[in-house]
């Protein structure tokens, strides 16, 4: 499944979608950046409530296919633009990380 398809089946909102074709395989949930760096796998969807610009560098370096901001969190100023220019997909949802993970699971991820 790619990110574009995931958005539809898991009912996610688009914050920025510069790389809609990226494959998604599995997910990682976490807010502590060095845990995410150490544990998230390539092409995971990364679910977090962190909204500052460091999430863009982490997403780039950990090779996740998208960031999903949970609990209705919105990115800090300038983050969306940075993500867009770096090709990092940011999605969002009013749901909790648990509810989002459930939706991803149900969608066949």
């Amino acid at each position: 499944m790619n990110v574009q398809e995931l958005i539809k089946v898991a009912d996610l909102n688009i914050v920025t979608l510069p790389s809609p074709e990226r494959e998604v395989e599995g997910a990682y949930i976490g807010d502590l950046l060095s845990w995410v760096m150490g544990r998230a796998c390539e092409n995971n969807a990364w679910i977090t409530i962190m909204s500052n610009s460091n999430i863009v560098a982490v997403a780039t370096l950990a090779d996740v296919s998208c960031i999903i901001l949970a609990e209705g969190v919105t990115p800090d100023e300038g983050v969306t633009e940075t993500a867009e220019s770096k090709g990092v997909n940011i999605l969002s949802s009013p749901k909790s990380a648990y509810e989002i993970a459930k939706a991803l699971f149900k969608s066949g991820l």
Binding site: D31, L32, L33, S34, W35, M37, G38, M50, N52, N54, I55
Partner: peptide, 15 residues
């Protein structure tokens, strides 16, 4: 509060 400080950076470097 920015998401740093888990104390996992050096262990990640080692790994």
């Amino acid at each position: 509060s920015l998401g740093f400080g888990a104390g996992m950076g050096l262990p990640n470097m080692k790994k």
